[in-house]
Simulated assay, not measured.
Amino acid sequence: MTRTRIAGITVGQSPRTDMTDDLKAALSDTLELVQYGALDDLTLADVRQELAPAAGDEVLVSRMRDGSQVTFSGERVVPLVQARVDQAEREGARAVIVLCTGAFPQLRHRVPLVFPQPLLHSVARALAGDDSVAVVVPETSQVEQARARWSASGVQVDVVAASPYAGIGGVTEAARGLAGSGAAFLCLDCMGFSRAMRDAAREASGLDVLLPRTLVARVVSELLG
């Protein structure tokens, strides 16, 4: 069977071996996932020197190839993401998923270009109605920007931080702190959060959980699969 090629572009380095199994499990078996990384040509020292967030920049958190966490400017990484979109299209991708829940400007593209943030926010807004939603982001430096982004999307949120790159324990602890919060459900607001973390967060918080990596994969499967 000939499978349809789709690209997954991480804002960190590829391959995202921590993400691959979850994505493939949620994607139609008619789709072939090929990964690209915005930071593939950079060292950790390069990222810290060239992409450090300036005052007012959106802060993004991702993963280097060796598994280490890296923090950088959302604005400064955009040209590198655009270069990978261009490359993926040249190499035959029929759709491109940006594997990050951050906010991005409109990028140049010829095939469907899928950003998780608007999908996640739209689904959460539709499900929550007038109720609040609990949100977990990777870094405390992202709490206020996440609150502002979600509010702009019309969703009342309670935001806490726990990094998916520091293990499942921190995610479980953060979720446990949301038990009894009265939130309609919980959103794990980073593509780094795994299905195992979703399950642990659900058990610890007593809340239903939206996971962006599987949500996006299922939407793309509906479109192309």
Score class of each variant (00 low, 15 high):
residue 10 T to N: 05
residue 11 V to D: 04
residue 20 T to W: 10
residue 30 T to S: 12
residue 31 L to A: 02
residue 33 L to W: 09
residue 37 G to L: 00
residue 41 D to Y: 14
residue 41 D to V: 10
residue 50 E to F: 12
residue 59 V to W: 07
residue 63 R to C: 14
residue 64 M to N: 02
residue 64 M to W: 05
residue 67 G to V: 05
residue 73 S to P: 13
residue 81 V to G: 07
residue 83 A to R: 13
residue 85 V to A: 08
residue 88 A to V: 05
residue 90 R to L: 04
residue 92 G to S: 04
residue 94 R to A: 15
residue 99 L to F: 11
residue 100 C to V: 08
residue 100 C to P: 02
residue 103 A to K: 14
residue 107 L to F: 08
residue 115 F to E: 05
residue 115 F to V: 08
residue 117 Q to Y: 09
residue 120 L to H: 06
residue 122 S to Y: 09
residue 127 L to T: 14
residue 127 L to N: 11
residue 128 A to C: 11
residue 132 S to L: 13
residue 141 S to P: 07
residue 143 V to S: 09
residue 144 E to C: 08
residue 146 A to S: 09
residue 147 R to G: 12
residue 149 R to S: 14
residue 151 S to H: 11
residue 152 A to N: 08
residue 154 G to R: 04
residue 156 Q to S: 12
residue 159 V to S: 01
residue 161 A to Q: 03
residue 163 S to P: 02
residue 165 Y to R: 00
residue 166 A to Q: 14
residue 168 I to S: 14
residue 168 I to E: 15
residue 172 T to R: 06
residue 181 S to G: 02
residue 185 F to I: 01
residue 188 L to C: 09
residue 191 M to T: 11
residue 196 A to K: 12
residue 198 R to W: 07
residue 200 A to W: 13
residue 202 R to T: 10
residue 203 E to M: 10
residue 206 G to D: 10
residue 208 D to G: 14
residue 209 V to H: 03
residue 211 L to A: 04
residue 212 P to Y: 05
residue 214 T to Y: 03
residue 214 T to P: 00
residue 221 S to G: 06
residue 222 E to P: 00
residue 223 L to A: 15
